[in-house]
Simulated scan of single mutants.
Amino acid sequence: MHYTFHQLQIFCKIVELRSITKASEHLNLTQPAVSIQLKNFQNQFPIALTEVVGRQLFVTDFGKEIAVAAQRILEESQTINYKTTAYQGKLSGRLKIASASTGKYVMPYFISDFFSSNPEIELFIDVTNKAKVVNSLENNEVDFALVSVLPDKLKLESVSLMSNSLYLVGSKAFNIEKRRSIKDLFEKTPLIYRENGSATRNAMEQFILKKGYKVNKKIELKSNEAVKQAVLANMGLSIVPLIGIKNELKNEELQIIPVKGLPLHTNWNLVWLSAKKLSPVALAYLEFIKDKKDSIIERDFQWVNDF
Rank of each mutant, 00 (worst) to 15 (best):
R94M: 02
M1L: 11
E187M: 10
G63Y: 04
L262R: 06
E122D: 13
K217Y: 13
Q7R: 12
S238A: 13
P108T: 04
A69L: 12
R94P: 03
V259L: 06
N140Q: 11
L29W: 03
S158V: 10
D300G: 07
L95F: 03
K277D: 13
L91K: 08
L17R: 07
I182F: 10
K293Y: 09
L270R: 07
R201T: 02
N216Q: 07
S136D: 13
V227T: 05
I80D: 11
T200W: 03
N175E: 13
F174P: 02
I66F: 05
E248Q: 13
F45S: 11
I243P: 01
G54C: 08
K155I: 11
D300S: 14
N43Q: 09
I20G: 03
E220F: 09
E65A: 07
G212S: 00
K211L: 02
Q37D: 11
N175P: 03
G236Q: 05
L156I: 09
S274F: 03
A230C: 08
S35A: 10
S198V: 07
V271R: 01
M204Y: 14
S136A: 12
N234T: 03
P108L: 03
I14T: 05
S295E: 14
P108I: 07
E287P: 01
I111D: 02
S101C: 15
E157C: 13
Q302F: 09
I176G: 10
F186M: 05
K210E: 13
Q44G: 07
I121P: 03
S148P: 02
Y285M: 04
K90L: 14
L262E: 03
M162I: 15
V147C: 06
Y3D: 10
K96C: 07
G261D: 09
L168G: 01
D126H: 12
S181I: 00
M235Q: 15
G63T: 00
T128R: 06
T85F: 14
S99E: 00
N202G: 11
N267Y: 12
E138L: 10
V227M: 11
A275G: 01
K290N: 15
N135K: 13
K277G: 07
Y167F: 09
K218Q: 15
N269L: 11
T266Q: 09
Q37P: 05
Q44A: 08
T85Y: 12
N202Y: 15
N247A: 13
R55Q: 10
E122A: 05
F62H: 11
E220I: 13
P32L: 01
N118C: 08
S274R: 13
F186T: 01
S77F: 15
K276H: 00
A282V: 03
F62E: 06
S274N: 14
